[in-house]
């Protein structure tokens, strides 16, 4: 494989890895929005929080695998507490209050991580089993990025199975299209909301741990992911998992090729794209509801 092709393949793989992580974050965001009508601006903060929990687990002597298991669960517990004690009480009084509340949660988490973990960035080393390079059609590629892609694919598979093959998944899909009606059928929607919120923050948490060896853990790490996930959800369509998947991959690739070829235009393009979609197709490309 010559150098140019290798570069392209490398960029595609990078884009896919970032796109898959983006999907993990965006899928939680889109599910929460679809179910509860809440655009959770604090979502990327949970992603960052989980990365910091990963730092703590490793500091306390745990290894990366333990962190990958534990950190997202701790994050989900915090997510559940936010839902139960903060968001639920004001659900009835309209979306503006909820939106502003999530801004408050975002600010508190952003500052709290700096209080507890300091402002320095923490390096997380790639677990030794995944440290090497792997040969894909003659291209040397870091094994860890490949692992990230497969991890996200596995979670996507489980998510699809859960949503389309289980009774709970059916209730969630019904809730996305009409939560009031589902509640009228005698289903405990507040409980379902809480579970969806937990699942969403857990997904963000997995992405947070998975990205930390690639990005290192620092207070601003949620900024780009947050905006990217937000754009992905808007473009893909609110509440649409397929839309989130397609647009996450698209923006992942745009991101990796943009850095290569159009370092100044690419981030602008992303928002232009989002503004165009929102203006002319407010439901998003795959969405069914506004």
């Amino acid at each position: 494989m010559d150098a140019t092709t290798a570069m392209y393949v490398g960029q595609i793989m990078h884009g896919l890895a970032y796109g898959m992580l983006l999907f993990l974050v965006a899928s939680g965001l889109t599910l929460i929005f679809g179910m509860m009508g809440i655009l959770n601006l604090a979502h990327a903060s949970f992603f960052m929080l989980s990365a910091y929990f990963c730092v703590s687990v490793i500091h306390m002597g745990g290894n990366f695998w333990l962190a990958l298991l534990a950190a997202p669960i701790i994050t989900a517990v915090i997510g559940v507490m936010v839902e139960r004690f903060l968001l639920r009480g004001i659900h009835a009084s309209g979306h503006i209050g909820e939106l502003i509340l999530t801004v408050g949660v975002m600010m508190v988490i952003m500052e709290a991580v700096q209080v507890f973990w300091g402002t320095d960035s923490h390096m997380i080393s790639v677990p030794s089993a995944l440290a090497g390079m792997v040969n894909i059609f003659g291209l040397q590629y870091p094994l860890y990025r490949l692992f990230v892609i497969f991890l996200a694919l596995a979670i996507l598979g489980l998510l699809v199975l859960f949503l389309f093959k289980t009774k709970m998944g059916m209730i969630i899909r019904a809730g996305v299209s009409d939560a009031e009606m589902v509640e009228a059928l005698g289903i405990n929607m507040p409980l379902v909301f809480m579970m969806v919120f937990a699942a969403g923050t857990w997904l963000a948490g997995v992405a947070g741990v998975a990205i930390s060896p690639l990005l290192s853990v620092f207070p601003g790490m949620a900024d780009q992911m947050g905006m990217d996930a937000f754009v992905v959800v808007v473009v893909g369509g609110f509440g649409s998992l397929l839309g989130a998947f397609v647009s996450a991959l698209f923006f992942g690739l745009l991101n990796s090729f943009g850095i290569q070829f159009l370092p100044r235009i690419a981030p602008v393009l992303m928002f232009v794209f989002m503004v165009l979609v929102l203006s002319f197709k407010p439901k998003g490309l795959f969405g069914e509801r506004e």
Binding site: L39, M227, F230, P267, V268, V275, L278, S279, P282, E290
Partner: peptide, 29 residues
């Protein structure tokens, strides 16, 4: 013209998008 037909969450999101667009443009140029 792009904003006024929206209300609620959609309005907030489009304003967020425009705000970020402006921010990125000023940052990059």
């Amino acid at each position: 013209p792009l904003l006024v037909r929206l209300s609620g969450t959609a309005f907030s999101m489009l304003t967020l998008a425009f705000g970020q667009l402006m921010y990125i443009v000023c940052l990059k140029f």
